[in-house]
Design a binder for these strands. Structure first.
Lengths: 214, 214
DNA sequence: CCGGCAATGTGACATTGGTCACTGAGACCG
DNA sequence: CGGTCTCAGTGACCAATGTCACATTGCCGG
């Protein structure tokens, strides 16, 4: 297991021996089914997750139960919110849910703090921070300025010609509702941009979609 | 001037002598009037700004010319977008405008990269990153889920009993338009929450506003 | 083949926020 | 005092999105 961990997070190979031992000893491995809530708003932050397989969706919750995905944590990546909480000693301000069965190891807070003293590890977290920032900015722009059809068109692109997905799943991704997605997709189909089937969307005109996405 | 700089950014005092000399030699001081665009979307990132006085408003632009403030950079703080761009070698994805006459020094990119090798300086940037993350999350939540009256009520709070501000300024802050703000404020006034005057808003019932803000 | 479930289609309507086009009210200045 | 700003108030209207209530469709297990 530690091999898998180091393969996905090579930065851990650069630790001095004493810390490497502590990592081996103190991390907690676990495998959780899809849909597990790993952390939630207002919870204190217990430790830092390294994802080995599967993935975590980090979402903001609305009052009425709808939610908006902020980003995903895939194997080899890090959870920026957790980093921020651990550094700022603040509580979580979003929810993390597994998207599929997920294997991960949890590093206790104290050890995480120790590792941050290591330049290599600090750089690792640092660069993941800076990468996510731009994504978050992009997200702000999207929800603040872009209309739903633009966002939907963007969502359909870059995933191949054939998508296996329900309208509900697309709506969740956009923080919207199924009916809107159905209507917009119908509009796309009427324009000849896509062909629709049950749990199936075939992209006929990527350029057209890109034009709508703007 | 270097004294002022070090007073606001004490981390610079912890640099080794050779780097301290380079800082002194290579930074560019400038004073710019209010409303100056310091950087803009799609521009490459020239260097890292240290704000000595005044302040920078960082905004995202909409297609129709409206804009949404992301955050402000005040003396002693750092510009997270700039850090992100410098680290990721990417272009800016927002605009930075001075809010008032602003004195700042610009550190060239090469020197910034050098300084990042210093643990103290890296930690400085690091913590500013983590602080801003939560703010950005908050912003996403606001624009995605909160209604304008809630956001306006929130904006009025925590600034004292008497605000000297035009409706237009409030609208700009919310990324909205004057008419909406006028209407909502009228509503607040009708409920006895505020009293309105020219460029003047008196908070009569902070608790009531807080209730609306949610 | 049938019953039932999940996915989808659709129309009517409500709400929110923005746009346009004004009017009116103070403030300031010659 | 009259002219001219900026700021604020307001009504009519529109576009986008969400909500509700169903109808429909296709698939799958029994």
């Amino acid at each position: 297991m530690t091999d898998t961990l180091a393969a996905l997070y090579p930065v851990l190979r650069q630790l001095p021996a004493d810390l490497a031992v502590r990592v081996e000893r103190e991390i907690q491995a676990m495998t959780v089914p899809a849909g597990t809530v790993l952390f939630d708003e207002r919870q204190p932050c217990q430790g830092f997750p390294f994802v080995l397989s599967g993935g975590i969706r980090v979402v903001k919750l609305a009052a009425n139960g709808r939610e908006l995905p902020l980003y995903r944590v895939l194997p080899g990546e890090s959870c920026i919110i957790t980093s921020s909480c651990l550094l700022g000693h603040a509580d979580y301000n979003a929810r993390g849910v597994t998207e599929s069965e997920t294997a991960l190891v949890l590093m206790p807070r104290a050890l995480f703090d120790q590792l941050l003293a290591q330049p290599a590890f600090r750089d690792f977290v640092f660069h993941l921070f800076s990468e996510r920032i731009a994504e978050l900015m992009q997200l702000v722009e999207e929800v603040a300025f872009r209309k739903l059809d633009q966002r939907l068109a963007g969502l359909l692109l870059g995933r191949g010609r054939q998508l296996h997905v329900t309208h509900q799943q697309l709506a969740d991704e956009l923080g919207s509702v199924r009916e809107m997605v159905s209507r917009l997709l119908k509009g796309f189909a009427d324009q000849g941009l896509v062909r629709l089937g049950r749990e199936q969307i075939e992209i006929l005109d990527p350029a057209g979609l890109r034009r709508i996405a703007g």
